[in-house]
């Protein structure tokens, strides 16, 4: 019974979170703290922090965390499956439509206008991260508050990606190691 409730809750979270992780957070809070009381508000804050610090989609992290807490490993599996079920159905249908009709002039035209918009969205996500690195979370941004170590690390990573075509996962690992080293030297 509890497994079925978990499943239904996460189907709703999967179905209504359009536009990625940050859309999922309030839905997870509503279902797990307010509707079902599976988590306290403090536990939910823990969940949000862990989801932020670990790789993977926030909704999947949330499903695993809540599922484990409520019903062990079966809970985690059921909640995760519920969370991705709407995607499996809707996106598979879209995939079929895309492959069948993408040669149509109308869809060609729509897709070719969508591509530059997607490029802009990716670029904006990157610039927001860069601002976060340079200024931390602060709203007021002035030159004397710039965190140079993080910015220099960014510049070095950008250079090896563009000039030397390093593998991005290698770049990420190197940045993690550099962060640790700079931190131990008291520079970060």
């Amino acid at each position: 019974m509890i497994l079925f409730q978990l499943f239904l809750s996460f189907v709703q979270i999967g179905l209504f979170s359009i536009g990625g992780g940050y859309a999922a957070i309030p839905l997870i809070q509503n279902q797990t703290v307010e509707v079902h009381r599976w988590l306290t508000q403090a536990q939910f804050m823990d969940l949000a922090t862990i989801a932020e610090m670990t790789p993977g989609p926030i909704a999947i992290n949330g499903a695993t965390f809540v599922g484990l807490r409520v019903a062990g490993i079966p809970g985690a599996v059921v909640a995760t499956f519920g969370c991705i079920l709407p995607s499996l159905i809707i996106v598979s249908l879209l995939s079929w439509v895309y492959r069948k009709y993408r040669e149509l002039p109308l869809l060609q035209s729509v897709l070719s206008s969508l591509r530059p918009a997607v490029v802009a969205l990716i670029a904006a996500a990157g610039i927001n991260m860069l601002l976060q690195i340079a200024f931390g979370g602060r709203e007021v941004r002035s030159v004397d508050q710039v965190q140079w170590a993080g910015l220099l690390l960014f510049a070095a990573a950008f250079a090896v990606l563009r000039r030397l075509k390093w593998n991005p996962i290698l770049v990420m690992a190197a940045c993690g190691a550099a962060g640790l080293l700079l931190g131990l030297l008291g520079l970060f």
């Binding site: 670029a123 991260m129 860069l130 976060q132 990573a157 990606l161 991005p168 993690g176 970060f188």
Partner: peptide, 11 residues
């Protein structure tokens, strides 16, 4: 440190 790497990959 990895945050800097992620921003570089995306940009």
């Amino acid at each position: 440190g990895m945050q800097s790497g992620v921003a570089a990959v995306i940009l």
